[in-house]
Amino acid sequence: MELTVEQIAEGVRRANHAMVDLEQALNAADAKLGDGDTGSMLVRVIGGMAAAAPKTATSVSEAFGKLARAGMSATGSSLGTLFAGAMLLLAKQTKDRSVDWADLSALVGAARDGMMARGGAKLGDKTVLDMMDALAAALEGKTDAAQAGKAGVDAAERTLEAYRDRPCKMGRAKFFSEKSVGLDDPGMLAFAGLVRALATAK
């Protein structure tokens, strides 16, 4: 099945809607070892993406480009910039071609690799990259939105669970590595919440 501009716009709408409930939980998770602003930052980023009207794009690439530029105006935080940078990479990867749901695994993998090169984190550092890695694997062979949604939510929850008791090795939390054991990484928690929102019609 083809991945459409309408589906991307609907995904942004769902994510923006979900942030209403996620904001305070993410701020609280971030306040444990950080500044306590991850939720509010993502509200600005995703709100900006929704306001950029991805629905009006004439191609999937243009839609991702709109999301990237909106993210880049909304924040300078590392997580937000990585998110916007991933959108920019997706825009480049999908330029001048149609995109199928079956391509999504490879696209998420490319975004993961781009974010890794950009931000310097490695797999296993307990960051959003570990979520993307799990998502890329879970999406393999999935050919429509329903299959991808179910596999994505399973993978996100499994990965969050698997990393909870491991130490964080990236970002500010790396200075308090042992204290991060038992805590969800705020970026991973946000990723899980957003994947759940994307997969659920509301």
Binding site: D35, M72, S73, A74, T75, G76, S77, S78, T81, A84
Partner: peptide, 12 residues
């Protein structure tokens, strides 16, 4: 110029 203790965004 970014927010307090936060990078300046790409636009700026």
């Amino acid at each position: 110029i970014g927010n307090v203790f936060e990078g300046p965004n790409v636009d700026s």
